[in-house]
Write a protein that binds this DNA or RNA. Structure first.
Lengths: 118, 118
DNA sequence: GGTTACGCTGACGTCAACGTCAAGGACGGT
DNA sequence: ACCGTCCTTGACGTTGACGTCAGCGTAACC
């Protein structure tokens, strides 16, 4: 069975983003579609990447940070220094996520209080 | 005992933001310091507000959204329409927070996987 | 063979969230 | 009297994340 592929328009519709956004993400190296002539051809890999990007975006990360994060998924951690760096980045992200979770908890508690006042 | 107060510099140092940021937040109505002459004088209320703003910021909300949220804490929900609107806003925020929590869970699971690969 | 639909690349515009001067007023210390 | 420190208000600059428009190519359809 041949590998499935999508046009830029397909992808934009599927994830509710604009064509410009997808092109922008490619310019930043977040997506690396195949080219047939000048036309972009997207594969499953690109869909997964886009999902990662959008999730990062919802979590408030900059596209720059997201780039570093998604590249962690692909990188073969060749050298030992690279590996160390990678694990360090993971630790940093975990800390951010943990603080976010705490912020969410606090905010929800606050919302509870506001709601109770009604 | 007199109410405690702080200068703009105190507040900036305490929350690790710039003076410009604090002035910007005042311009947007997020902070409403007292004035002694032209000089801003901050009180406990402003500290609490600033904490809310920074939490909202860490969660990726725009200052505009944050303004609406923090004002929910103060508003006396006068009319019934206002109240309805307020509760609706709370519901919307809760949904966003819930999705963020899911995103965080997913991202942490992904980080686990990346880490395990090492 | 003209129109419509889709694709591409520049390149300039926009908006939020500040950064960064410039120019000045109000203090305390020496 | 003058310095250093803190405060103020404009006002223009910057960065990120796209929006938007111009100008063009191509493939399908009628």
């Amino acid at each position: 069975m041949a590998e499935q592929s999508w046009t830029i328009r397909d992808l934009a519709a599927a994830y509710d983003v604009t064509l410009r956004t997808i092109r922008h993400y490619e310019a930043l190296g977040l997506l690396t579609p195949e080219r047939r002539g000048t036309t972009r051809v997207f594969h499953q890999r690109d869909r997964i990447r886009l999902e990662l990007v959008l999730r990062g975006r919802r979590l408030g990360f900059s596209l720059d940070e997201i780039a570093r994060i998604v590249n962690m998924y692909d990188d073969q951690p060749g050298e030992a220094g690279q590996l160390e760096y990678l694990l360090d980045q993971i630790r940093v992200r975990r800390e951010e996520l943990a603080r976010m979770r705490a912020d969410i908890d606090q905010t929800e508690a606050d919302l509870d209080a506001v709601e109770a006042r009604c």
